[in-house]
Design a protein around this nucleic acid. Structure first.
Lengths: 164, 164
DNA sequence: TATTGTTATACTCTATAACTATA
DNA sequence: TATAGTTATAGAGTATAACAATA
């Protein structure tokens, strides 16, 4: 024993917003997925269901844009919701390339239950924080998100980092 | 047109901390990886390098525990840092199963450069927020992380953090 | 020419089981 | 028996190219 391990902690990383945010988000994701799993939903399928419920008739391309998911990756998500008969995909009468997404009755009912589960999850995760503290945190997070979209010298800053 | 698409936004999801946090973290991750890529680092390899730099001699199992990475997944990360000759893996004299991780001179130099890059990244992402707002956000995020470890009716009660 | 939805594909991240060599 | 490091593997999540049908 006593391998001369010092404080053996991550103090040095805690000064970066990103590290702390990653750990908090991991905790959130674990908890929300555990909360939604019993009703057959995941974080992303809940998000898609919510946006469809609030924007009936919207096409997949719009849903993908709203959730910032690439169109190819949305296909399986929409299929999953359709297979469970929580949403319908009807051909658009004005654009025969597009589908109109809408919640079924069962989908709306599930969505209502899921909202309660996610609200309970949110309350659990923010326990000990005042409404003002949570509001302030969300505001800061949205500012960070907005700052991310800013490109500096006209150079396109994207995420693609392939090895090699 | 007028596909009857309403606000076509994600307002309904913005009330959940997790959704806003996911979007903010995506922005952070994209930016930090773009910042570190030119020096051959990613977010996770930077984190590992930082912890090794601050805790010379620690074994992989401890590094995995600190960063909350499963041991099998840490192997490739450590290999990557070793192959680049930024850390060394010496057999522990007191436990022949374990390795002692240490930064090389080049690793320490790279780490210093990377710290500057990550600090610049952090300043960029939190631009427009006061020091107090950033500190408050981090505090809230750490509280959320701590709340995640707590199981209510069960056995798994972890650390009870201060406050409340 | 551009867009919608799709297929195929590939790379990353994450989680688990099981092995070896030690303890 | 338990632990340190490893291998193999499988599941998500994410990104791009290219296609058919349609605009």
């Amino acid at each position: 024993m006593s391998e001369q391990v010092l404080s053996s902690n991550d103090t040095v990383l805690r000064r970066y917003s990103g590290y702390t945010m990653k750990r908090a988000f991991n905790a959130i994701q674990t908890d929300v997925n555990a909360s939604l799993a019993p009703m057959g939903l995941r974080m992303v399928t809940f998000s898609a269901l919510a946006v469809v419920a609030e924007n009936p008739g919207l096409p997949q391309s719009k849903l993908a844009e709203i959730l910032m998911i690439e169109r190819p990756n949305l296909v399986a998500i929409v299929e999953e919701l359709e297979r469970s008969e929580w949403i319908t995909r009807d051909k658009s009468p004005t654009d025969r390339r597009a589908y109109q997404l809408r919640c079924t009755i069962a989908g709306k009912r599930l969505y209502q239950d899921a909202v309660l589960a996610v609200e309970a999850h949110d309350a659990r995760m923010t326990a000990g924080l005042s409404k003002e503290e949570v509001a302030s945190m969300k505001s800061a997070l949205q500012r960070i998100e907005a700052n991310g979209g800013i490109k500096k010298g006209g150079i396109d800053v994207k995420s693609n980092v392939s090895g090699a």
